[in-house]
Amino acid sequence: MPAPFVKRCLAAVALALSASALAQPRAADEAELKAAFAYRIALFVEWPAESLPAGAPFQICSAGNDAAWTAAFATLDGKKVQGRPLAPLRAVLRDDELRGCQLLFVPQREGRKAPPAAAGLLSIGESEGFAAAGGVVGFVREGTQLRFDINRDAAARAQLRLSAELLKVARGVIDGAGARP
């Protein structure tokens, strides 16, 4: 086999591989998409100073323990929120373990029951109706795309400040009575 031919083949393979690595995200895990959403949403939120201890990383927690979500949020490695690096996802099984979480992700199977409105806790839920039930941000499927609702009262109770831009791109903003007991 002539060496130039082999080299050309290798080059072609390398090119194909690099091209595929550069390709846009065309098929990603829905969990990863939601993780990316959660991260992007967090960039438009201001936390109360006392809920972010100096030097501590930004802690994202998930309700329940599911390897799929751990993997999804691991794709955010190296990102920063509020100038702090992200700590690995922490699974929370009981409400009293929420201490130190800045963002709580509530997967669909945990239902849409409202999380406790702890100060400095941004709750993002996967189920439809999560925001209406007293969560701060709830995902909704619209056609084939993902949107989210915001509960401004829940955000206020958690002493979070949401930027106007975030409210603008939300599908719905819930005001008024907020969460039911």
Binding site: A27, A28, D29, E32, L33, A35, A36, T75, T144, Q145
Partner: peptide, 25 residues
Amino acid sequence: TSAQLADLSLEDLMRVEVVSASRKT
């Protein structure tokens, strides 16, 4: 691809198609 997802703006994320399964885009 995941890293790129996180680099998309909210507006761009909203354009990603969620076509198939409950946990899969």
